[in-house]
Design a binder for these strands. Structure first.
Lengths: 238, 238
DNA sequence: TTTTGAAAGTGTATTTTTCACACGAAGTAT
DNA sequence: ATACTTCGTGTGAAAAATACACTTTCAAAA
């Protein structure tokens, strides 16, 4: 096996690149992921599939731009927290029978290999305006700990997104991205507990989170609760 | 701007996917990165460029497989530490004039957009067998803190690889991947100091690294040094 | 054989961080 | 007034991080 010979130019057939967004939301009780449902085909005996929202990257678009576009089409929200976390490139990741059926309904080249770059995003459910994107039927939230069987390799993508979110939550304290602008420490703690899937001690949590200096205490208190109202905080800017 | 209408199927022109490998090596003194040099074109007035080794992902190949193949072509080594760290998707990342000149010498579709997935790998310089891969001219090592100007977006890729390597070194203690099979704690400490770019205390370093239980002490000692020979260690298996 | 040079190897005291743990205060509803 | 619910807080113990200096071991040279 010598390598002295001149290598011929190898032609690859070209691939599609897509971006898939694992959109996380928090409803004070569960960490949710936004799924879209395949539009019901004319042949109504075909069982529709579910997936994470995603789309092809357009020819002049960067990956970050594609992710932002997908998110905006779906949620009408701009300026949302978005982070690339992994590229999924198995050559057969869209080769399932039902995956192909679905792709044929909206892709010009459904048989083409597609590499997808995974992003996750954190949205405030309170600001969320549901909207069916034109690449999908309905969109809806499901508990991240009860994800149904998804199309393509999307179960793996969601799982990896959750692992990366956990890391980043610990390292960079980005939890407030999932909460309303003003929130209490108890809300924040519950968010951490659900994302990390473990109980935390209240006093230690407060000490730790305040030491990071990522929060600004407000003069306001919680309103309309039937118990002692808690102090509100917001994220510290810069 | 309504979205009620049916979206036409959008055709993207398809992209090439490449994998670029930032190969790190350690020579007891510097952390090095392996670069390849563009083969000198017939027009010898053209100044050749340097880059990180990389190649297109073949049609039936996963990303991990492509990275392993590139590395094997270049180093003849198998079973090397390899880790995906980021996807670089700027639509104009190969649009420089000299980048295009280079691509035309070995790509069938040099004008095609190419997304690259960055991997970094850790090799033991002691086992390294230099070998010009057929996608490049010579390969050589340069100090990671003195990288020359590279083709494409490869300076950015190397920089990001170094940041990721630092993180992983702290978190997972993978330093021994860069050292010979048997090594001393002083060698390991120096490696950490160079990667992290800061001085460490000898006693504290030893306490910490031994507490991680990633190393096995050997009964052997260093040979052929003109001072007290140090105890040798190897990575703990499992 | 003694001396010299060079890196190896080792312990302790201080500070900081982590962890475990319980109760009175403040508000609402009845 | 009482009951209910969540808020908000401190301390002691254990573990981890940090700062810091001297003796030992070997080979080479004198």
């Amino acid at each position: 096996m010598t390598s002295k010979g001149i290598k011929p130019k190898i032609e690859t057939q070209g691939m599609d690149i897509s971006v898939d967004c694992v959109v996380f939301g928090f409803d004070n009780d569960q960490l949710k992921v936004l799924l879209i449902e395949q539009k019901q085909p004319i042949d109504t005996s075909i069982k529709t599939q579910k997936a994470v929202p995603g789309d092809l990257v357009m020819d002049n678009e960067s990956l970050d731009e594609a992710a932002a576009r997908i998110l905006k089409e779906l949620t009408s929200l701009k300026g949302i927290y978005l982070k690339q976390f992994f590229a999924f490139g198995d050559p057969n990741r869209v080769r399932g029978l039902k995956d192909q059926q679905w792709l044929r309904t909206f892709r010009v080249n459904p048989e083409r290999r597609v590499l997808t770059v995974g992003y996750y995003s954190l949205v405030k459910l309170s600001e969320f305006k549901p909207k069916a994107a034109n690449f999908a039927g309905n969109a809806y939230w499901v508990d991240v700990y009860n994800i149904p069987s998804l199309a393509f390799d999307h179960n793996e993508i969601v799982h990896k997104a959750l692992l990366m979110l956990r890391h980043e939550l610990m390292a960079d304290h980005i939890g407030f991205e999932l909460l309303p602008e003003k929130f209490t420490l108890s809300q924040l703690q519950k968010l951490y507990e659900i994302i990390l899937d473990k109980k935390l001690d209240k006093r230690n949590f407060r000490k730790n989170i305040l030491r990071t200096e990522t929060l600004t205490p407000l003069k306001e208190k919680q309103q309309g609760v039937l118990h002692k109202p808690a102090q509100l905080f917001k994220r510290k800017l810069k």
